[in-house]
């Protein structure tokens, strides 16, 4: 009898997860954080020609409200610190989409002293969108990939971040020296 209940419980849980995934896939709220230059094509993807809102996507004001963090292009060291803050503030489940070649391997900034080379060392990436800069078609395609990923459970970056937190944190500290933001304001 006990096993039966556990079985039933599992099924219920799975059913609930399935329903949740359906809603999550169809209502993606992006964080309005233009970390780099690829953000310039986002307004185009949002406005009349491509209209992201058809897919249920929209911009949101703060990390707490958002589901998707867009890393639009290169990440300077200074931005990476703030992106980590933003990512950790978002409530789970959360997804991260990286635009352009710069978060993959540095792109044209492979030798720049202020730009990181690989984003997946510091934060888990769910979808990469290629192109410098990605055209709105590519952006929409990437979001479709993310939606598919949510539906078939492959977009699980937030779980990976939770499970391998130590490893990510070690990489972050190695490259950034210190995670705490220190600027004129925080003196």
């Amino acid at each position: 009898m006990g096993e039966g209940i556990i079985e039933k419980d599992k099924k219920l849980k799975e059913g609930w997860e399935g329903i949740s995934r359906f809603f999550r896939a169809n209502s993606l709220w992006m964080l309005m954080y233009c970390t780099g230059c690829c953000a310039i094509e986002l307004p185009q993807a949002m406005t009349s020609r491509y209209d992201m809102e058809r897919l249920g996507m929209g911009p949101m004001a703060t990390p707490r409200q958002a589901d998707v963090l867009l890393v639009t292009g290169y990440l300077s060291v200074k931005t990476l610190r703030r992106v980590i803050y933003a990512y950790e503030q978002m409530s789970t489940p959360k997804y991260l989409v990286a635009f352009g070649p710069c978060p993959i391997n540095g792109g044209i900034y492979y030798d720049a002293y202020a730009v990181i080379n690989r984003l997946d060392q510091y934060l888990p990436v769910d979808v990469y969108i290629a192109g410098c800069m990605p055209k709105p078609e590519a952006v929409m395609n990437g979001f479709q990939d993310l939606i598919d990923g949510i539906k078939n459970k492959t977009a699980d970056g937030w779980k990976r971040y939770r499970d391998n937190y130590e490893w990510y944190r070690k990489n972050q500290i190695e490259s950034l020296g210190e995670l705490r933001i220190k600027d004129e304001f925080h003196e």
Binding site: S76, T79, R82, Y109, D111, A112, Y113, A114, V115, D183
Partner: peptide
């Protein structure tokens, strides 16, 4: 108020 720039600093002049 201050502006805190540098979030988009890529070291372009050096590159």
């Amino acid at each position: 108020s201050y502006l805190l720039p540098g979030m988009l600093h890529r070291g372009f002049e050096k590159t």
